[in-house]
Design a protein around this nucleic acid. Sequence first.
RNA 1: GGCCCCGUCGUCUAGCCAGGUUAGGACACAGGCCUUUCAAGCCUGCAGCACGGGUUCAAAUCCCGUCGGGGUCACCA
Length: 519
Amino acid sequence: MVRTRFAPSPTGYLHIGGVRTALFCWLFARRHGGRFVLRIDDTDQQRNVEEALAPILHGLRWLGIDWDEGPEVGGPYGPYYQSQRADRYRAVAERLLADGLAYRDYATPEEIQAERKAVQQLKRPFIYSRRWMAETSQQQARFEAEGRQGVVRLKMPREGRLVVDDLVRGQVEFEWAQEQDHVIQRADGSCLYHLASVVDDHEFQITHVIRAEEHLSNTPRQVFIAQGLGYELPQYAHLPYVAEPGSRNKLSKRKLAKYLKNRDFAQRVEHGRKIAEAIGLKTDPEAFNPVIVDFYEQVGYLPDAIVNYLALLGWSLDDQTEHFTRQELLQSFSMERVNKAPASFDCQKLWAFQEHYMQQVPDDEKIRMVLPYLQKAGLAASQPPGEVEARVARIVRAAGDRIKTAGDVLDYADFFVPDDELPYDEKALQKRLRQPPGAVELLRKFQAQLAAADAYDAETLGKLLHDFVENEGIGIGQIIHAVRVAVTGKAVGFGLFDTLAILGKASCLARIERAIRQV
RNA sequence: GGCCCCGUCGUCUAGCCAGGUUAGGACACAGGCCUUUCAAGCCUGCAGCACGGGUUCAAAUCCCGUCGGGGUCACCA
């Protein structure tokens, strides 16, 4: 039975690279009919764990990455919080001590630091002298009499090699002598990550440790612990990390300002920011940042688009297939086809997936997705009760694939503002109403036609305008743009006849009237 | 600096292990078609094997070296 785990530390946000790792773990487990476990690595957490964990759990659920065991769902190997497993780690540390694989060490951090510096000046790799190592109780007593506090360190081998068989990178070799005597337990008895991680992976019966590449160099010390304890080693798979747009550096939420210099990146952030502002969300980089998964939910992206994009960031099936349903992903994912090199995060490509998946969403589903944005923007209230939904439905149909994220419905806010509050785009007004000679007169005439129309559906209005064009002997462009600007305030939008029909006669007449006064 | 990893269009990638392809696809970009503006759609184009040596009839692919990039070196995870 394959068992994988994703082990986030409660940081308060879900990093895009983190989810990619989680996705691969999830995909791999499910692909092999196994189980996906969520473990919380909070060995060093002072802050409120629940609060810092909530966005992470929420983000995973939003993307449909569900866990078989872990927080909120429990499971046979719990607890799944490392902070609740401290006694197990301590017991294991005792065993390591008893077996001579670890030792108590009484060096102060300053003393270690001094050794390190001295060795560095000789340009030699640092290996701790073990000068404050205490292997007997007499030695311990002596150091403690000096008022020293002991930590527990791993007693790493000083010769030989380790070969790690990595599912992604193949055989990776390490020299044992290069490894440090890492601290596994503090003086206060609390244990550190490496110990905890190895113990839990074993106790949770994790068969495949799938994690980011930055853990590759941690592997020897973990193997040392596992072997010392007689554990069966898991298979390792070290995924390349997700890199910055246009570089090979690790993607970081703190470098947003730098990424904004990338045109594509800036474009997507700007798109999202407008939506977020319209619905009253914070848009500072801590809260609103494309490196954090929340961003996409807030703007109204589709989980499927993100999952598909992320799956292809470091993995591919072949030279052709781009679009995968969950089912297809689950059937075709394999570790053999994971790339070794880091992949740059490209939000424009993610956007392309978003467009694609949005086009697949049925209208009624889109309507459901879009409504909350109008409500949060305070636009839904301006309509009589019950009429909002109907109007939204018509807009969604008319806009078609122009609505690329749920938040894009706000591009049609002008359908929800009162006629006498409609804002006009100054440039559009200039170009379509003020500048062209006779534009206002034509508009006036057309307004009269509209007023006389007895049916007010798109088809009738289309015919009406075409007849008008013919009777006046003008080009269609001479009137159509002017009407659009007059009724929506903008130069762009979906089909004009749909626009007029949705607005309704009274609004159209009032808006044209008001537009003429603006000229 | 030590150790480890990585290197195919601007980006994601296929091809590499089992040498022979006009080096394929996608995003982006440019141009065109369609058109009622904007999207969408369709067509076309641009663009890549980090470099240098070998081995071979033949190298993106195998070997060696160089260069470049990155990760990691905590009483963080």
